[in-house]
Amino acid sequence: MGLAVDDLTEMLKGTLEGCVLEIISREETYGYAITRRLNDLGFTDVIDGTVYTILLRLERNQLVQVTKRPSEVGPPRKFYALTDAGRQNLATFWTKWRYVSSRIDKLKEGDA
């Protein structure tokens, strides 16, 4: 890979939660699948523990609701779906993201 994108941890810090909410908004899903989705997207440094920590926070803040469902392999899995508050939070995330990224792009273009 030509680009040095192997250490995004710091830069992703504030946005990962929004990414997780977005993934959950598409369909009800479970922790390990969310990590895999982020890894496939190119965020290869994201580990299950990080996603688990985010899910725990989302649950505490009642942005997601959790349902335990049986799995073919091993113990029941916790599936996550957005609550109304979660959907609102996600909408706010995208508004903020568009604002930040458009400002930063402008800065780069030099006409800010």
Partner: peptide, 28 residues
């Protein structure tokens, strides 16, 4: 629950927590 799911998925423990276990726990 998280560890049981990780074990069932055949992953090694440090791959799910990261090498800095204390940082993972403090995050929790």
């Amino acid at each position: 629950d998280f560890f049981e799911e990780g074990a069932a998925a055949g992953r090694r423990v440090l791959d799910v927590t990261g090498a800095d276990v204390a940082a993972f726990v403090d995050g929790l």
